[in-house]
Design a protein around this nucleic acid. Structure first.
Length: 101
RNA sequence: UGGGGCGGGCGCAUGAUCGCUCCGGCCCGCGGCCGGGGAGGAAAGUCCGAACACCACAGGGCACGGUGGUUCGUAACGCGAACUCCGGGUAACCGGGGGAAAGUGCCACAGAAAAUACACCGCCGAUGAGCCGCUUCCGGGCGGAAACAGGCAAGGUUGAAAUGGCGAGGUAAGAGCUCACCGCUUCCAUGGUGACAUGGAAGGCAGGGUAAACCCCACCGGGUGCAAGACCAAAUAGGGAAACGCUUGAAGGCUGCCCGCCUGAUGUUUCCGGGUAGGUUGCACGAGAUGCCGGGCGACCGGCAUCCCAGAUAAAUGAUCAUGGUCUGCGUAUGCGGAAACAGAAUUCGGCUUACAGCCCGCCCCAUUUU
RNA sequence: GCGCCAGUAGCUCAGCAGGACAGAGCAGGAGCCUUCUAAGCUCAAGGCCGGGGGUUCGAGUCCCUCCUGGCGCG
């Protein structure tokens, strides 16, 4: 709730990144996949992909933040590679935003 | 070889690296190390049946709901097996199953008529009465028309469905009125645990459809569901309003209702306001799995041995790379590229139903060819 | 997870226990009225009743099954 109220939003194709700074030593990740995406298999698949990108390339994400990834129904990524480049394209201008916070 | 029917199985494999989660052990202070386990045939839909838990262990009556050939199997079932009858198919095989002579309702349109076999159109007019003609031994006889009484149910363009079918005899015309065959009903005998089958005799036609309409018969069903339930901890408040009631009894347990039973008094219910929405358990050894042997036509059952095989809580079971296999596009080929379904446990089992790329195995039927 | 409801015209709903009853209102279309618009009046169009099987002579209605949407719980 706090993240949604105070967080910065970065809108990508198929998902939205919401984040806010915290007082902890590291970042925390939350994933929100709406029920309009049909089938538990597809929803689980999306969550696993996002979690995997977060694990492998934590440097791409904002540091020391609570991050929520909200997935839209038009989410089309099927491999970690394509999702990773999409996150990188989204966050690279996003780093400058973080400095303004 | 082609086409078809039925049943069963698999549903990518192996290795490396980095992660997630549970269990056991160790250092035992956070945390880390080692070893092991980690989605499915449907985990799905939630359509049935149970286990388990609570509700006075649930008593009686009426409702209500479900099932429906028979006999087995099963903890139980609306599931399965075998058999039986009916329907479809050349066949393998597939689909269906109580009662319509206990009663009630409905059957549009069309049609004479839709359940009572009557009326209507119609057929006959032998018999009885009357009319006309011919004849006469004056008693009557023969022929004709009409259709009064009367007889009849053969035929009647319909419709989904029309009151046994067909043939012969019979008659004035006809009719199970009579007969043969078929169908039907009843009875008897034989076989079978039984549904039922086979054979015989008699009756002389009684019978429309619809019970996935009400209903009748037989059997079954108390209700609610793991957010059931049990325990621990924390927090806030013993707040305000309304209704009913304080032993002639509110309200609740307990399902739809009634009876009966139990609980029951600064109480119960509803609304407003406020707080917590954590942990443990239920919860992973079970109608359990695998193999062998035995019984049974089969579903299935019995015995022995071995094994322990997911337990998450916003929810783990993943990612990358390599090699190999399957299918497929291009190419003579080495090869290069692509694809891989349906779908994700949440208290647990037994079924049913639905979804499913590709592939494998077995049995059977039909047609064709060769011997 | 468990337990329940609903689906009919573009929208909101009727449709009794199965038969020419597939209907009402609004919206949209055409015409009349008016100098024009609104209101009013008249007219027609619009539906395989969520999909597929079955029962029946006949199904929007009865039975089964699937799909879609919605609701409740401690």
């Amino acid at each position: 709730m706090l993240v949604y109220r105070r967080g910065k939003r970065l809108k990508g194709s198929g998902f939205t990144l919401v984040f806010v700074g915290n007082e902890l030593s590291g970042s925390r990740l939350g994933i929100s996949v709406h029920r309009v995406i049909k089938g538990a298999v597809r929803r689980n698949r999306i969550k696993r992909l996002i979690r995997e990108v977060f694990r492998l390339r934590r440097d791409l994400f904002p540091q020391q933040c609570d991050i929520v990834v909200t997935v839209s129904p038009d989410f089309r990524f099927t491999s970690t590679g394509s999702l990773q480049t999409a996150v990188a394209d989204l966050v690279c201008p996003g780093i400058s935003c973080r400095h303004e916070v």
